[in-house]
Amino acid sequence: MIRLERVTKGFKSGRTTHYVVRDVSYTIERGQSIGLLGRNGAGKSTLLRLIAGIIQPDKGRVRREAKVSWPLGFAGSFAGSLTGEQNVRFVARIYGVDTEELTEYVEEFAELGDQFRKPVSGYSSGMKARLAFGISMGIQFDYYLIDETLAVGDVNFKRKCQEVFTDKLSNSDVIMVSHQTSAIRNYCDRALVLEDGKLTFFENIEEAIEFHNRTLSIR
């Protein structure tokens, strides 16, 4: 369970404060996979970072009674001077999982070939995403936070991701930010729309998408 308790987070730009969330309370129960919708710049990634615990709210708090992943995304969570393999070992160590096992799993999964033992600074963003996806799938989390990364690689790789991911979803849940409403339709059963610092909850994905499209067209 992840519980947002009267969470406020804003960023000052000049004299005005732009609120990502303003006094938001919401409980994400286990067994719910949630798609997060909102227009560009609404702060979906920031909300994901709040949920992960990378950043702290200005007011209120986020309680996590579950093992929550880091937000998987293009933002990059790798030390560029380390090789892919060294980055995998690092993550294995910090999360206390077997380094050899995780290395083997990711090497096979991410299909990076020789590049796996080359510095990450030379990777394309697609390669980084494959590495990140492989690492996180190799560690058991209750919640996987996904920031726009499912659509990487060629058709085969995508299919493989989908298989592993669907398999994961039998025990784990996902909180997903995506521009592709198709991904959200595939993996999520609920949706939240983030707009002007407010979260609106939808039991039904289609209603959420419709609501989201409507707010987009108003602006």
């Binding site: 992960a52 990378i54 880091w70 990059g76 969570s77 790798f78 030390a79 993550v91 910090i94």
Partner: peptide, 11 residues
């Protein structure tokens, strides 16, 4: 110099 690794909430 570890900023990227600070994307892991555990760090």
């Amino acid at each position: 110099s570890n900023r990227a690794l600070l994307n892991y909430p555990i760090v």
